[in-house]
Design a protein around this nucleic acid. Structure first.
Length: 515
DNA sequence: TCTACTTACACGTTTGAATGGT
DNA sequence: AACCATTCAAACGTGTAAGTAG
């Protein structure tokens, strides 16, 4: 569940937020332990303008500990052709986000980008503060032709969900010019999309925490159940366990077999967004725990606000090259290089705060989610591959490139060798977070002049009619009537973890497109 | 042969209508 | 008549296993 606290409504702007509601504790728990995002109260002075307010919005992850537990094991999400309830057998259940997909690796077909817009969007800040923001109906699919508006993912890839909060205005509920927005990223929500669980530990965690899987609980209940199904009075070893034990036996019996062999086979399917296959970063036989980076282990919500300087729009940044280009030329040894300190990446002016939308777009390839950002420049727009509400035109995107491989953790279920999961870049929580604030984000602001440069404002996609697959509901009449209320849209996106996009800002959303 | 994917299945939870009591 | 609690069945969400495809 997710809750934004800190959004409030006022005819003059924003007033001090209402105290945290007590309904959070009593709110119905999501299917799998009630994970989600919750917010903390925003301290927004009365009369503060929207751009100042939105950067102060704080969103926290609900059931963070549970998320971390999964994250440390290497979260996996089941995706099916028909669409499985969300990210995570529940971890994302009760989250209503907008998911958009970054374009897959070079060798992969472009994915239809999709954002999942919270069904309640747009709604006032008071509405979002009232309760946990749930993304319950979000579903994941691997069906590229999915007509239901589910989030389309590639199997065996790692994704990083992102939450976008977009300020709407009185005209079209989502604003036109100067629409503020912010993006929240919770590293512990990253996951690998799979069609069947690869990690037995994840399976067990899901079973333990998901009420719907209660039937599989107990001391290896699944095995007991199998025994019952086979009319046996003794438990039989399940297939996954048998496979795991078999491989283990084989490995122990054949010392000449590299323990990494199986892992390599598994990992060759895990790709970063840049299309580079994962490589091993650990020495042979070395088991690197997933939580090697203490910064990530306690990453919390990365939220940091930055403002882009107009004068920096055309800086020739060293990181301006295409992410795809960069990755394609990267040799294997690249993955053994140490990444630049995360705080340097994120806080270096040349890296994040002065990156133009166009440049940022380049970092992430042609990610549908940020495809529209080029509209703020006079450069030709990148190709769009979204069929929903995918493009957030004013979004200035920032990319944290993890060009190095990161440790994987063992997949006990199927892989007995040391496998390594792609990871978020190491995060220095001490240096990258504002004092007293565990949040991290990037804030970007587009000037009025820039907004004007984009040409005549067009109506927001909602006015052009969303495809029926879009899981949105029209704003309630009372919301439309409340002309002076600030309306917020909550959406969620997914990005390939190798190129995390942290963006927020203020500008038009006129180029959001249905694709 | 191996791996990922699809499908069907059983089990448990959730939801909402129907029913009965106050 | 209105409200509340209980019951029950259908819908839904799980993970698993078998079969299929590449």
């Amino acid at each position: 569940m997710l809750q934004d606290k800190g959004l409030s409504e006022s005819e003059e702007g924003f007033r001090a937020p209402a105290p945290a509601h007590g309904d959070q504790a009593s709110a119905p728990e999501p299917a799998l332990g009630g994970q989600g995002l919750t917010g903390t109260p925003l301290s927004s002075p009365q009369g503060q303008d929207a751009e100042q307010t939105i950067e102060n919005i704080k969103v926290t992850l609900h059931e963070k500990e549970l998320w971390k537990k999964f994250h440390e094991a290497g979260t996996e999400m089941i995706i099916t052709k028909a669409g499985r309830s969300v990210l995570v057998g529940n971890q994302f259940t009760n989250l209503k986000f907008c998911l958009s997909l970054m374009v897959a690796g070079k060798a992969e077909p472009a994915m239809p980008g999709r954002l999942y817009v919270h069904p309640d969007s747009p709604a006032t800040g008071a509405h979002w503060m009232r309760q946990l923001v749930s993304f319950q109906k979000l579903k994941l699919t691997n069906n590229h032709l999915d007509p239901f508006g589910h989030i389309i993912l590639n199997s065996m890839h790692k994704y990083q969900p992102r939450l976008h909060i977009v300020k709407a205005d009185e005209n079209n509920a989502f604003g036109s010019k100067n629409t503020a927005f912010c993006t929240h990223v919770f590293p512990e929500t990253s996951f690998i999309s799979v069609t069947s669980y690869q990690n037995h530990k994840i399976t067990q965690l899901k079973i333990e925490n998901n009420p719907f899987a209660k039937g599989f609980r107990g001391s290896d209940d699944s095995d007991l159940r199998v025994a019952r199904l086979q009319s046996k009075e003794y438990p039989v070893i399940s297939k996954s366990i048998m496979r795991q034990r078999l491989v283990s036996t084989q490995l122990s019996a054949k010392p000449d077999v590299s323990p990494l062999h199986g892992a390599h086979q598994a990992l060759q399917h895990y790709q970063y967004e840049n299309g580079a296959h994962m490589q091993f970063a650990a020495a042979e036989g070395q088991d690197l725990p997933l939580n090697t980076f203490p910064g990530q282990r306690d990453s919390g919500l990365f939220y940091h606000c930055l403002k882009r300087r107009d004068s920096a729009r055309h800086l020739d940044l060293p990181c301006k090259r295409s992410y795809l280009e960069a990755s394609s030329s990267v040799g294997d040894d690249h993955y053994f290089r140490s990444p630049p300190p995360y705080d340097q990446q994120m806080l270096s002016p040349s890296y994040c705060s002065e990156v133009t939308p166009r440049e940022a777009c380049m970092y992430s390839g042609s990610g549908a989610e940020i495809a529209g950002v080029s509209a703020v420049d006079d450069l030709p727009p990148p190709p769009l591959s979204c069929n929903m509400w995918t493009s957030v035109a004013p979004y200035t995107s920032y990319s944290v490139q993890t060009m190095e491989t990161v440790p994987y953790q063992p997949f006990p279920a199927h892989f007995t060798a040391t496998t390594m999961m792609p990871r978020l870049p190491s995060v220095s929580t001490q240096s990258s977070q504002p004092p007293g604030n565990t949040h991290f984000s990037i804030y970007n602001q587009l000037s009025q002049a820039q907004a004007r440069e984009r040409g005549p404002s067009t109506s927001f996609p909602r006015d052009r009619g969303l495809p029926p697959v879009c899981e949105r509901k029209p704003p309630s009449p009372h919301l439309n009537a409340a002309a002076n209320e600030f309306l917020y849209s909550q959406s969620f996106s997914l990005s390939r973890e190798s190129s995390l996009q942290y963006h927020s800002g203020m500008g038009t959303v006129e180029n959001w497109t249905d694709g």
